[in-house]
Nucleic acid binder design. Structure first.
Lengths: 188, 188
DNA sequence: GTCTATAAAGCGATAGAC
DNA sequence: GTCTATCGCTTTATAGAC
């Protein structure tokens, strides 16, 4: 890990990688120190409230990324089919390059913690909502749009679980391809 | 929690509930002690290797349950459509009555640990495999059967993630209903 | 088989020098 | 802004009485 000076957003990126590899609970400060190359002093300088703060910052960064790269394009693209194809391609590449881990899913399945419950709910409900709206804009009936959107997000999240369980990227590639196919079929 | 004497399989059931509520890492021995009503002495009597042993036992019990209630019925039912409908109904009721948590998914997303990696892989690959075979028996083409089976298991697992994130049982009910619909359509 | 006490290690967080 | 030393607490695991 780079010894060169890190600013806060470098730190967040490094932390995201640690959390993806070890999970939130199992990533102890010692591990975080080693894997990010930052000392305790620096960590508590950037994240005064400690680990909870680090997790919050990482989730916020992921949320912002999806906002910009996925949710906004879904809203602004003029053609619904183009928007859908963009979404599937973007999220597939994102998760394949991020160890096939969705940190919001990890947070959702991880323990009793309503620590990040709001952030988790926001992420998923916004994703489903934006997709459903896009489908409606493309002429899909209200009811069908909602069902298709939930199914699509669920399929992608399930693919991530399976891909990790079977240690196989192809599950993500294949499932996402069929999700896209189904969504485009509904739009035609 | 019952104070009455527990045998090992009672202990495993109680442990499964704790792990579903808190996750594997966050369930400390103190918490386990409180939530199961068993003392440290009893716990280490039944599970000499400690927490790893407890987790292993719980996963083995879940695996056995699925073996008996899901995988075997998938194999033995004479009509593929009946087998599929049985599976979807059984797993829906199972997860709804188990806090919408699949412990194998929790293990799959939880940290670096290849601790239970083999058990996780076995569970998911067997589920997908059995379902695919059933579909083929029902006349579905080889390729389609494999894809449909992966999609079905992924959809169910994704539904569990979403249901927890949104705190809404209906996601499981609805997604599983549509999974069944799609599988039955392929069989007709 | 179950209990309590305790050991040994690791945890998150803080303080103070630089 | 980064470092190291250390506090106080919790963790898993064990020992030994009953």
């Amino acid at each position: 890990m780079a010894r060169t000076l890190l600013d806060r957003s470098d730190a967040v990126r490094a932390l995201a990688d640690v959390f993806r590899r070890r999970g939130f609970e199992a990533a102890s400060l010692s591990v975080i120190q080693q894997d990010t190359g930052m000392g305790r002093g620096s960590l508590y300088h950037f994240f005064p409230e400690g680990k909870v703060d680090m997790a919050r910052a990482v989730l916020a960064e992921v949320q912002a990324w999806f906002e910009e790269q996925v949710f906004t394009p879904l809203r602004t693209a003029e053609d619904a089919s183009v928007a859908v194809a963009e979404m599937t391609g973007t999220v597939r590449d994102y998760f394949l390059s991020r160890r096939r881990v969705c940190l919001f899913a990890v947070a959702a399945l991880g323990g009793e913690l309503p620590a990040h419950a709001d952030a988790v709910r926001t992420y998923f409900s916004e994703w489903v909502d934006r997709l459903a709206r896009t489908l409606r804009r493309g002429g899909v009936a209200n009811r069908d749009a909602a069902a298709l959107a939930v199914d699509a997000v669920a399929a992608i999240q399930g693919a991530l679980v399976l891909a990790r369980a079977l240690d196989d990227d192809a599950v993500v590639v294949d499932v996402v391809a069929r999700v896209e196919e189904r969504l485009l079929a509904a739009l035609s």
